[in-house]
Simulated assay, not measured.
Amino acid sequence: MDTRPATRRTPSVRRWAAYATCVWTLAGYGTLKLYWALGGTALISSAPLPRSAREELVAQTPGTIAGHWISVGLVVVGALAALATVRPWGRVLPRRLLTVPMWIIGCLMVSRACGVLGFGFIGDVMVLTGSVHVGPSDMEVARSLSRVDLLLWSPYFLVWGLLWGATAWATPVRRPPVRP
């Protein structure tokens, strides 16, 4: 049983959330986007996107490659933002500048994972159970994409969104020093 006071555990929770978010961002999404930007093709055909967007992704058009590089840049910014919540150099940034985007990103990712934004657990189950009409020519592709999304992408975005929320929640309130 942990007998340390709650105030001593708070810094470790902050660090855990921030570092986990940073690692999840860089190691998962960042690595994949960098791999795609450099011409890799693994998992591209299983990306849960509309047919035209998936075809562009598979064709590696200049626009999609540029999008991957933009994503890589955003991943770096996101990883640095997560670290800024626990590192001394991050104290120069206003707390709200860090936490408001983190809450928004976390909510969007959880919404995406659940299916509020079209893909996600709800949409995948609806496709797999036949609750959503899919044309006969697209049925096999839709079912395949739904299975991959249900087992890979939706859980990934759910955990990532929860990590962003945990990081935002654990970011300390910065009080100005008290003057004597």
Rank of each mutant, 00 (worst) to 15 (best):
L80S: 10
P136N: 03
R95D: 08
V125W: 14
L34R: 01
L93I: 12
A84I: 06
P62T: 08
G115E: 13
V127A: 03
V72I: 12
A142Y: 15
A79I: 07
V116F: 01
A53I: 13
A84H: 11
G118V: 09
G40Y: 04
G28D: 08
V77G: 12
L98H: 04
V134W: 12
D124Y: 06
S111C: 07
M139F: 06
V148R: 01
W153K: 11
V159D: 03
G30R: 02
A47R: 00
W89Q: 04
W36C: 01
G30I: 07
L49K: 08
G39M: 12
G165Q: 00
V76I: 15
M139T: 10
F119Q: 10
I105A: 06
V72S: 13
G135M: 09
L93R: 05
W36D: 00
F121M: 08
Y156H: 10
V58G: 02
F157Q: 04
A47S: 06
V86C: 12
S137Q: 02
A53E: 15
T167C: 12
P172D: 10
T167K: 04
L108M: 03
V141A: 05
G63Q: 11
L34E: 04
S45T: 10
E140P: 04
A53G: 15
S154E: 13
G118E: 09
D124W: 02
L80M: 15
F121K: 05
P94R: 10
R51E: 15
W169V: 01
I105H: 00
R87A: 15
T171H: 11
A81G: 05
D138K: 07
